[in-house]
């Protein structure tokens, strides 16, 4: 199964730990996971445990505009994309969860 996740809250919000746990569990069961970060959610790429999701095969895309506005710098393995990418994820996945 393909799982899509939208996360738009800061790393201090409990949503982040929920998304990390869901992503780890999904990957453990062999599901594909694509996360789109926007608004304050872009800060999550600076959290080690979150960025570590890349190593277990999670696809992470960040809204480049929101990242630029928040001075979040580019990171290896993370696509700095746009709402087009968000729409492509939403269309492609079987289930889509939104944490806002």
């Amino acid at each position: 199964m393909k799982l899509g996740i939208l996360l738009s809250t800061t790393p201090e919000n409990e949503n982040t730990n929920t998304v990390i746990s869901i992503s780890r569990a999904a990957r453990k069961h062999g599901h594909d996971v694509s996360i789109f970060l926007m608004y304050d959610g872009v800060y999550n790429i600076n959290k080690k445990e979150f960025a570590g999701l890349i190593e277990i095969g999670v696809n992470i895309t960040v809204c480049a505009l929101n990242a630029e506005q928040r001075k979040v710098s580019k990171a290896e393995g993370i696509l700095f994309g746009s709402q087009y990418d968000h729409a492509c994820i939403a269309e492609d996945v079987d289930r889509f969860l939104s944490f806002g």
Partner: peptide, 15 residues
């Protein structure tokens, strides 16, 4: 005149 657009718009249009 918006840097992120110069990367993303061409990539999306190619797609």
């Amino acid at each position: 005149d918006h840097a992120p657009a110069v990367e993303n718009v061409p990539r999306s249009l190619k797609n």
